[in-house]
Amino acid sequence: MTRNKKLVLWLVFPIGFIAFWELIVIVADLPPFILPSPSLVFDRFLISVKDGTLLTHSLTTLSEMLTGLFVGTSAAIFFGYIIAKSRVFEALISPILVSSQAIPIVAAAPLLVIWFGNGFFTKALICSLVVFFPVFVNTVIGIKSVPRQLSELAKSLNASKWQILIMLEIPSALALFLSGLKIGATLSVIGAVVGEFIGADEGLGFLINLGRGLFDTALVFVAVLTLMFIALVLYGLLSWVEKSVLYWNDHQKASVLK
């Protein structure tokens, strides 16, 4: 597909969607509390941009997300590496980590608020818990995916553990790790919002709650669309990082295809 065709598709689909949305509201004569029109949502967006509320709340949520993403990813790399390298740890920790994923974060979040208060720390912690698992699983698979022949070759060449990690394991695991990180980054949005739903006076989750409490559905849409935008930007950034770091992967694929 040519660049121009891509651009046209990128423009046509959102414009068509917004036009369809506006049309539904007009034809069905829907009141704003059921479905606000795109123009009403845009008006509400402008108001919240002008009075600074959207920026303040977005920055709060973003800082919770990024902190959670950093902490969750760091923990996932640490535990992922240990479990990938040690069968004993795998047998001990894996069942706990896997079964912990069955705990709905909305059930755990109120407990975390009671234990740690309702400040920034708890929200970042909830985010990190949500981020942890996809990054962890991909890290373990990535580290384990090092071809045995290469591993044995490195050992036969007397490569140190550090050399094996830097020159073999990290490059092998990087593609899967970054895929997990992309999933984790988008999930961190959910983590931040869940934390803010439980108790907050700032953040986009709080703004959604406020909009619901005031029956201001347009405000709910503004907050939700902003969250989607943040998730999209984070995903795009990580995709760019992935493409830049794994440029050799594309070359490899291309050479295989040739």
Binding site: V113, N118, F206
Partner: peptide, 8 residues
């Protein structure tokens, strides 16, 4: 100073 804490 208001502190929103949910139903806790």
């Amino acid at each position: 100073n208001l502190n929103p804490i949910g139903y806790t």
